[in-house]
């Protein structure tokens, strides 16, 4: 209401401020607490082998979550990411005959095509993102199964090394995920596209009247999300050394949304936190790993995830209310 409101705040640490901090930094604190707890209570947690396993496992979710963060930042969502992963694994094994690189590129083009379809439905026809991407989620999985009806082994040394090779001890999937996270963070912060994306996510009518290329930006967002999901699909295939379009990427959209939301990106758009998204993905991975290492049933993992989501949403809600 007043301009003074944004003046330096020196009020005591009350509940509202605590919740603000919880939303801003809670996800990092969560990761730190889990790491500490594991170091203290989990045997062999500090081994290099364990860290490599965790990194390889988190990479696909993380990469998908990056694209999801863009979609959510534009006040949308991309439900088709899991199906894009399945489509990319089908394409990868179909085109493996032309060599691993051709196959990977075809898989990525497949992801881009799904993204283009999503973006066109949303920006030209005006379908709501949740509906448009739901349609592509069903269609994508169907197409993947048409191309490759059942599980197929992927025997290619090139693809295999992508999944299990490393550079100076850091596995390739983790390196790729880190590089992509940096690239997306840079795009959001420093490019015209990133700034326009945030403006569109925050207030679509204002962005339109300011002459922003709303359609182009939205289509680009969904293409990015599609390509990132395809990358995740390729990496997952490389690690499993098999293409399984029936189950690869199922429920991936939910994991990715969880990572984004837990990381503090509001579902209402206009703000994207890449650091938080990375931490969100890591948090959920660590949570799962911790419970598994202590021999708790998988259902516990789901309950723990649910608790984390509720906490994140609670913090976000309080913040919006002032």
């Amino acid at each position: 209401m007043t301009t003074e409101l944004a003046a330096p705040r020196r009020a005591p640490l009350d509940r509202t401020r605590l919740l603000t901090y919880l939303q801003e930094y809670g996800v990092y604190a969560g990761v730190a607490v889990l790491l500490l707890a594991n170091v203290l209570f989990t045997p062999h947690f500090l081994s290099a082998e364990n860290f490599r396993t965790q990194a390889v496992q988190v990479a696909p979710v993380l990469i998908v979550a990056l694209g999801m963060a863009l979609a959510i930042g534009s006040e949308g969502v991309d439900l088709s990411v899991g199906s894009v992963m399945a489509l990319s694994t089908s394409l990868l094994s179909l085109y493996l005959g032309y060599g691993p690189w051709v196959a990977v590129i075809v898989a990525l083009i497949g992801g881009a095509a799904v993204g283009l379809a999503n973006g066109s439905l949303i920006s030209f026809i005006g379908v709501q993102p949740i509906v448009a991407t739901l349609a592509l989620m069903v269609a994508g999985r169907g197409l993947a199964l048409v191309l490759l009806p059942q599980l197929k082994d992927v025997r290619d040394p090139g693809v295999a090394s992508l999944g299990s090779g490393d550079l100076l001890g850091v596995p390739y999937p983790a390196l790729i995920a880190a590089a992509l996270a940096l690239a997306v963070a840079f795009t959001v912060r420093r490019t015209t596209f990133g700034r326009q994306l945030l403006a569109i996510g925050d207030s679509r009518p204002a962005a339109k009247l300011a002459g922003l290329p709303v359609r182009r930006v939205l289509i680009t967002v969904y293409i990015c999300s599609g390509v990132l999901a395809a990358v995740a699909g390729v990496l997952a295939t490389a690690r499993l050394q098999a293409s399984d379009p029936t189950s690869l990427g199922t429920l991936m959209e939910l994991s990715a949304i969880t990572a984004v939301v837990v990381g503090g990106t509001p579902l209402s758009g206009g703000r994207i936190r890449i650091g938080g998204t990375v931490a969100g993905a890591v948090l959920i991975q660590l949570l799962t790993a911790t419970l598994i290492k202590h021999d708790l049933p998988p259902s516990w993992t789901q309950i723990a995830q649910a608790v984390v989501i509720v906490l994140a949403v609670y913090a976000a809600r309080e913040r919006g209310k002032r």
Partner: peptide, 26 residues
């Protein structure tokens, strides 16, 4: 509703329309 982008800063709001002109290669 149609003018300001409330969640963005004063700086981003002022630069919003002129952004392509204030950028090099995106």
């Amino acid at each position: 509703a149609e003018g300001i982008v409330p969640g963005l800063s004063v700086r981003e709001n002022i630069a919003l329309a002129a952004l392509p002109g204030l950028a090099r290669f995106g």
